[in-house]
Structures are given as C-alpha cells and as structure tokens.
Computed example of a mutant assay.
Amino acid sequence: MTRRGEAFLQALGDDAQRLHPEILAQMSASGEEDRAEGVFVVAGSRFGRLGGLALPVVGPRMLVTRRGHDVPFTLTTRSGRSASGRAVLDSTREFRFRGSTQYIVDRVTASVRPGLVRNLLGARGRVELIEECSVTEEGFLRMETRRVALRLGGRRLALRGPLGVHVSLVDGWDAENRRRTIDMRARNPVLGTVLEYRGWYRHVGPGAQ
C-alpha cells in the first residue's frame, strides 16, 4: 500500500530519515486517502479579485481571490503511482473564507532527479513548478522552486524574470500543541508576495496519527 507522503520520501531519499520523528511517522503511514483540518493564521492574496484576471490563462482551482485571518481549511490528499511507477500525491486545499469557499488543487510527482518533485497546479495543471525538497535543521520539510513553466496548447513556456514566481514552503511540527505547521509564500520579483498561507493542521482522516 502507498505511504501517505511517498512522493516526498522518494524525493528526499536517505535524507528522509532526518525528518522530525512525528513528520516522518505521518508521511510513512499507509493509506491512499487522507484528510486534515486546520486554521490559517493568514491566507490569501492581497490582490483580491484582481487575481481572477489570470484565471482564463491558468484555469480554475489555482488561485484564491480573497485574503483573511484565522481561516479554517481542509486538506484532502490521495496518494498513488504514475504509469512509470513514480509516487504521486493529489491535494485539494479548501479555504473557508468568511462568505465564500475557495480551492487550490495540485499534483506532486517525485522526479527522476534526486531531491526534486514536479508540481502541477490547478484543475488543468497548466502551471508547472519544479521544486527542490530538503530537510531543515529542525527536521522540517522545506520546498523551494527551481523552475516555473506555463503549459498551454501542448507547449511548455518557461517563466523567468518578471514573469516568474518563487514558492517557498516549510512543513513543520509544533511540539507544544502536537500539530503540523505550514508556511508558504509565493513571490514575484515585480509584484512581491502574490499568495501566502501559514498556520497549523492535524490529520483527521483514515490512518491519522
């Protein structure tokens, strides 16, 4: 049976053993489907509805057009394998803003290159991130974007310079409250932070720790 965090464990290789014991245990738990509940201390985009102008290009379920504090969220994941045998993780993040619910979906696949994962964002997978996975001194999972591309009409267009975006994510552990933590920021060199969310969550679905 597939492990919950197989895609990241496969990318990290031997470095996975450096993860915090709680994070490693949760990622190593068996089960294809999982659900987590949590609260983002802050979440969303400062550009608000202006962000919706990009939807015709990037497709649905990739952006949020709200920003808020203390935003409840649900993370639903399904793990499996690609036709080539690489680990795959499909995720849906449900942001329950006051007055509306919005979603971001992605598909993470362990790369053939050690340390890297391929992340397709949105319901149509039009934005592709190549991200490097590493382990912090505290044992947290860190992900940093190395390349970004837009996939349209069968073509793959590299996004660099003012068109690029750098995503930094740290998935950690709060020992005092015994819960996972998350801190994600997506920055554009011209516009600054275009999306962020940070807060905490706990697994509550099948096989939750």
Rank of each mutant, 00 (worst) to 15 (best):
L150K: 00
V135W: 01
G161D: 13
L163I: 12
E132S: 08
R160H: 05
L150R: 06
V148E: 04
G154C: 09
V170H: 01
G154A: 07
R160C: 02
R156G: 01
G161C: 07
G153T: 06
R147I: 00
R156T: 15
D174L: 13
L169A: 15
V167A: 12
L159P: 02
E137R: 15
L141G: 06
V165I: 12
R146W: 09
D171Y: 10
R160Y: 06
G161M: 10
P162D: 09
G139C: 13
G154R: 03
S168D: 13
R147D: 15
A149F: 05
L159G: 08
G153P: 00
L169H: 08
C133Y: 03
G161P: 04
C133W: 01
L169E: 14
I130W: 05
R156W: 04
D171P: 08
E144D: 12
H166D: 11
V165R: 07
E131N: 09
I130T: 15
D174F: 08
G172P: 05
G161I: 07
L169V: 15
I130M: 04
F140D: 01
W173Y: 13
E132V: 08
R155G: 13
V167L: 10
G153D: 04
V170L: 04
E144V: 14
G154K: 07
D171V: 14
E144C: 10
L157F: 09
G153E: 01
L150S: 04
S168R: 12
L141F: 10
A158V: 15
F140I: 06
R156A: 11
S168M: 09
V135T: 09
P162C: 01
E131M: 14
G154W: 03
S168W: 02
L169W: 07
T136P: 06
W173V: 02
R160T: 15
I130D: 09
E137S: 15
L169C: 14
G172Q: 06
S134W: 00
T145C: 05
G164D: 11
V148W: 01
C133E: 06
T145G: 06
R151H: 03
G154E: 10
V170R: 04
A158S: 15
R155I: 09
L159M: 09
